[in-house]
Simulated assay, not measured.
Amino acid sequence: MVKIVLRVRLTGGDHMDITHEDPDAVDADELVERIVSTLAQDSGVLRSRHGDRLVVLYGRGVAAIEVAPRGAVL
């Protein structure tokens, strides 16, 4: 299972750090490609975590993502 932390900048200007994991991904690079291709679709939806909460991101609301495999960029 591959787990990464993403800093997501929303179209409104806010940002949040979320954790995304995928049991089928081989490495972090493959997982990043899956995330980017999911959010690039018109109906792209990504289920992730923010602490103990489930966060559902819709591709149309995401302006940018930053990837930090070892933790949030502070």
Score class of each variant (00 low, 15 high):
His50Asn: 13
Glu21Gln: 15
Tyr58Trp: 10
Val55Arg: 15
Pro23Glu: 13
Val67Tyr: 02
Gln41Ser: 14
Ile4Pro: 04
Val67Leu: 04
Tyr58Glu: 12
Val56Trp: 06
Arg47Phe: 10
Thr11Cys: 11
Val32Gly: 09
Glu33Lys: 14
Met1Gln: 04
Val45Ala: 13
Asp22Met: 07
Lys3Tyr: 00
Leu6Glu: 01
Ala25Tyr: 05
Gly13Arg: 05
Val67Gln: 06
His50Pro: 03
Val2Ser: 00
Gly59Lys: 04
Gln41Cys: 07
Leu39Asp: 01
Arg47Asn: 10
Arg70Asp: 15
Ala28Asp: 13
Gly51Cys: 09
Arg60Ile: 10
His15Ala: 13
Tyr58Lys: 11
Leu57Pro: 05
Asp22Glu: 10
Asp52Trp: 09
Leu6Arg: 03
Arg9Asp: 03
Arg9Met: 04
Asp14Leu: 11
Arg53Gln: 12
Ser48His: 00
Glu66Thr: 02
Ile4Glu: 00
Asp17Ala: 14
His20Asn: 10
Leu10Asp: 04
Ala28Thr: 15
Val26Gln: 14
Val5Leu: 08
Ile4His: 02
Asp27Val: 01
Ile65Thr: 04
Arg60Asn: 11
Ser37Asn: 09
Ala64Glu: 10
Thr19Arg: 15
Ser48Leu: 08
Arg70Val: 08
His20Ala: 11
Asp24Val: 13
Leu74Glu: 10
Asp17Ser: 14
Asp42Met: 11
Ser48Lys: 05
Arg7Phe: 00
Pro69Arg: 00
Ile4Met: 01
Arg60Lys: 11
Ala63Asn: 09
Arg47Val: 14
Met16Gln: 11
Gly51Tyr: 05
Glu30Asp: 13
Pro23Met: 12
Arg7Ile: 09
Asp27His: 12
Arg9Asn: 01
Ser37Cys: 03
Ile18Met: 02
Glu66Trp: 05
Asp24Cys: 08
Ala28Leu: 00
Gln41His: 14
Ala28Ile: 11
Asp52Glu: 14
Arg53Phe: 05
Val62Met: 06
Ile4Ser: 05
Thr19Ala: 12
Ala72Val: 01
Ala68Met: 08
Glu30Val: 09
Glu66Val: 06
Gly71Val: 03
Val73Pro: 03
Tyr58Phe: 13
Gly44Phe: 01
Asp29Phe: 05
Ala63Arg: 15
Arg53Lys: 14
Val26Phe: 12
Leu10Pro: 05
Ile65Arg: 04
Ala25Leu: 08
Arg49Leu: 13
Glu21Cys: 12
Leu46Met: 09
Val55Asn: 08
Met1Phe: 02
Ala68Ser: 13
Arg47Ala: 12
Leu6Val: 04
Val26Lys: 15
Ile35His: 03
